[in-house]
Design a protein around this nucleic acid. Structure first.
Length: 741
RNA sequence: GGGCGAUUAGCUCAGUUGGUUAGAGCGUCUCGUUUACACCGAGAAGGCCGGGGGUUCGAAUCCCUCAUCGCCCACCA
């Protein structure tokens, strides 16, 4: 018995040692993998692009789940003889990271608005680089068998350039336009957001009924009346029939304005008074009403500034009321204007129990202020159609399949995508503006002069891309996609590129919560730019919750650090706890007890292996010739071996259909309750036997099943299985990691 | 307002196209110091498979309906 087998099993030292060995072996890199001669699969490839974790903190349990799932797929395919690539990376995560960094600054009593652009950018760069190092170490501790030689960052030079190329190409083809539209503006973070970055919450507010001359309108936002440009009613509403098309004089305290009454079918006759004030600059629905009635009514009048404060200077002369309101925040202004209107007897009634939804910033939960801004938009309908089709045709499969419906619904109702962000942390938009004539020039390099007026007063768009615009291109960018013209020249003679070998990738494994943010956009952008789907399968895992099914959050104090668990119980145990009983698409109730249970299992594997090896090391099983002559399998032995073969088949089947939670449980159950509890027990007598044949037959059976079991277990519990394999008397390959399944 | 999911043992969940007495882990209880393992072994208790109706020789599984919970989407001021 060799000294390596201390007990109980100690994962801490073993796991670090084993990972180093793997890493030094080079077998994480598919280029170094030899395809076994016996494999019928030849040089088939298998590729998973890791969802790049945000480089703004350390890994949480969700990342550990992602790592476990993907590593299982990768290790399984590698053992099945595929040229297997798992490509790691990290995401600069624009807005997310900037918010994290801002919070850090706030704690130090600083504000990002006081730091010059370039300096802030450099600070966040250093911050993310430091985080990347930590994250990579953590991935290694979890056993991730990814190819570090190919790791990518979303701000790598080539990624930035190719992201910008896509933008330029889309602009040229009319898929991207600059539009002056209402965007979701976060007053705190001072940036616009896409509709996916908003959340909705029900609020109880007051609904004010305000007299607009002969008409009474109902509104929750009386402070926007300064920006009114019309009153809308439903064309079928008899009450207002003779007012449609006429102008009415409205007293709005700060002055009097004339508003045209228009008919629009969006107005609900039943709601309120059936009449709506139209404020195109500060309400999405009103903006759209204006677009339908451009000829009849005035356009947007902005009376709220980017800080969420009232600004009347462009539209009203200074007077007493003006002075009271100017510069007030929205909610304060609301009080003041209501008071003033009440004084004038213009408030008909107030419903204080009005329930409605408000849009909030998904990060800070402040109410979003719709604001009129010039931004870059991606026209989505053209991109969405092929993305729908390819899933309908089954070229991309969802696991679980029900997410297809959610995907279709979103794509069929998709709205144009605002990709401009008013932050510093991100990929610069390759666009330039002529300060003299306003011409827009889309180009990576600064143009010498304006294409239109020939003057040289040119400045770059200060905005950066929505982070999902770059990560949406991740699969083909990380694999080194080159546009066809370039790649032709380059590869006439040379070997296949990664892109040619691995794209489309095989599986995209990620959380269902970013189905729209990321998965849908990768499909659209992959089809658009590379002309091919980015992946064949989408495996969506759920959220890791605490044992009471509560969402883990810092404020609740129920966050569990995966590395703490790795240190205490080992990565193998943590991986099992995350995988078993966890079906795709469903959230997981996670508890430390579960990890402890699988730590016990790891020890079980250790002890059983120890027993088998203790009883075989002097058996001289190393020489096949002696083995063959001394072994006589009984009917029962054959039954046991057959039983294992059946297990292997069934586990293989589950692995191939992405049912890792079942595969893992089957092998777990077999190893503990069949191999350890039954097979070892029933062979103890024979191991003590005087009869050499009996003894060696028992040794053979135990060793055979142990080795096979280690293989089946390896994708799930890579460390302990490799460590034991290294101590086996006759191992066929250098590592279990590249052993034949 | 649309849509999705869930409801199975005390807890967390499986149950693949309908097919014997419905499974696992954890927990509970009883027994056991058999030299691989107490991070263990042997055994046990525990379920009108949310309610109601239907299809079927047969339903946890298919259909309808109701209830409760969770989630996503949506420009009703």
């Amino acid at each position: 018995m060799n000294d390596n087998f201390n007990q109980p099993y100690n994962p801490f030292e073993t796991e670090k040692k084993i990972y180093k060995k793997w890493e030094n072996s080079g077998y994480f890199n598919p280029d170094n993998l030899l395809i076994p001669k016996s494999s019928k699969l030849k040089a088939k490839s298998f590729c998973v692009i890791m969802p790049p974790p945000n480089a703004n903190g350390s890994l949480h349990l969700g990342h550990a789940l992602m790592t476990a799932l993907e590593d299982i797929m990768i290790r399984y395919k590698r053992m099945r003889g595929f040229k297997t690539l798992w490509l790691p990376g990290a995401d600069h995560a624009g807005f997310e990271t900037q918010v994290v960094y801002e919070k850090k600054l706030e704690k130090e009593g600083k504000s990002r608005f006081q730091i010059p652009r370039e300096k802030l950018w450099q600070e966040i760069w250093d911050f993310t680089q430091a985080n990347k190092v930590v994250m990579e170490e953590q991935l290694k501790r979890l056993g991730a068998s990814c190819d570090w030689s190919r790791k990518k960052f979303t701000l790598d030079k080539d990624i930035i350039e190719k992201t910008q190329d896509t933008f330029i190409q889309m602009y040229k083809e009319g898929l991207i336009y600059r539009g002056n539209r209402l965007v979701n503006w976060c007053v705190k973070h001072q940036t616009g957001l896409s509709e996916l970055e908003t959340k909705h919450e029900e609020r109880t507010d007051s609904l004010y009924y305000i007299k607009y001359g002969p008409i009474t309108v109902a509104t929750v936002r009386p402070e926007t009346i300064f920006g009114d440009t019309a009153v809308a009613v439903n064309p079928k509403d008899k009450r207002y029939k003779n007012l449609i098309g006429k102008e009415i004089e409205v007293d709005i305290a700060v002055g009097k304005i004339n508003l045209k009454v228009i008919a629009d079918k969006i107005v609900d006759i039943e709601f309120g008074t059936g009449a709506v004030k139209v404020t195109p600059a500060h309400d999405q629905a009103d903006f759209e009403i204006w677009q339908r009635h451009k000829d009849e009514i005035d356009g947007p009048k902005e009376v709220i500034d980017k800080f969420g404060k009232i600004d009347l200077k462009d539209y009203f002369p200074k007077n007493e009321i003006y002075e009271k309101l100017q510069g007030l925040k929205v909610l304060e202004a609301r009080k003041v204007i209501v008071e003033e209107l009440q004084k004038r007897g213009l408030i008909e009634k107030i419903d204080n129990n009005y329930k409605h939804d408000v849009s909030l910033c998904y990060k800070c939960s402040n109410i979003l202020e719709p604001r009129l801004m010039s931004q870059w938009f991606v026209k989505m309908d053209t991109l969405a159609k092929p993305a729908i089709k390819t899933v309908e045709k089954g070229e991309i499969k969802f696991i679980p399949a029900r997410f297809k419906k959610v995907y279709f619904h979103w794509l069929k109702n998709i709205r144009d995508w605002n990709i401009s962000r008013q932050i510093v942390w991100g990929i610069p938009i390759p666009a330039w503006f002529c300060k003299d004539c306003g011409e827009i020039i889309v180009s990576k390099e600064k143009p010498d002069k304006c294409e239109k007026c020939n003057r040289t007063n040119i400045e770059q768009d200060k905005d950066v891309f929505d982070t999902w615009f770059s990560s949406g291109q991740w699969p083909f960018l990380t694999l080194g996609y080159e546009s066809p013209s370039k790649s032709k020249i380059k590869n006439q003679k040379s070997k296949l590129t990664d892109y040619e070998k691995f794209y489309p990738t095989d599986v995209m494994e990620t959380g269902w919560d970013i189905l729209f943010f990321w998965v849908a956009r990768m499909i659209m952008l992959g089809l658009y730019r590379a002309g091919k789907i980015p992946f064949k399968h989408v495996y969506l895992h759920g959220l890791v919750r605490d044992k009471d099914k509560q969402k883990m959050s810092k404020s609740k104090g129920n966050v569990i650090d995966p590395l703490g668990l790795v240190n205490e119980y080992g990565a193998d145990a943590l991986r099992m706890a995350l995988i078993i009983g966890n079906t795709p698409g469903n959230d997981l109730a996670f508890s430390e007890e579960k990890v402890r249970g699988y730590r016990n299992f790891a020890n079980k594997i250790w002890q059983a292996s120890r027993f088998v090896l203790m009883n075989t090391e002097h058996a001289d099983l190393r020489k096949p010739s002696s083995r063959l002559t001394q072994i006589r399998l009984t009917a029962h032995d054959k039954k046991r071996l057959k039983e294992f073969e059946n297990l292997k088949k069934s586990v293989t089947k589950e692995m191939d259909s992405f049912k890792f939670y079942i595969a893992g449980e089957k092998i777990y159950h077999y190893f503990w309750h069949t191999f350890a509890d039954k097979i070892i027990e029933e062979n103890k007598e024979r191991l003590k036997s005087e009869n050499l044949t009996d003894r060696q037959t028992a040794q053979f059976v135990l060793l055979e099943i142990l080795t096979g079991s280690l293989k089946l277990l390896h994708p799930f519990m890579p460390f302990i299985t490799e460590e034991i394999y290294q101590n086996l008397p006759d191992k066929k390959s250098e590592f279990l990691m590249i052993g034949e399944w």
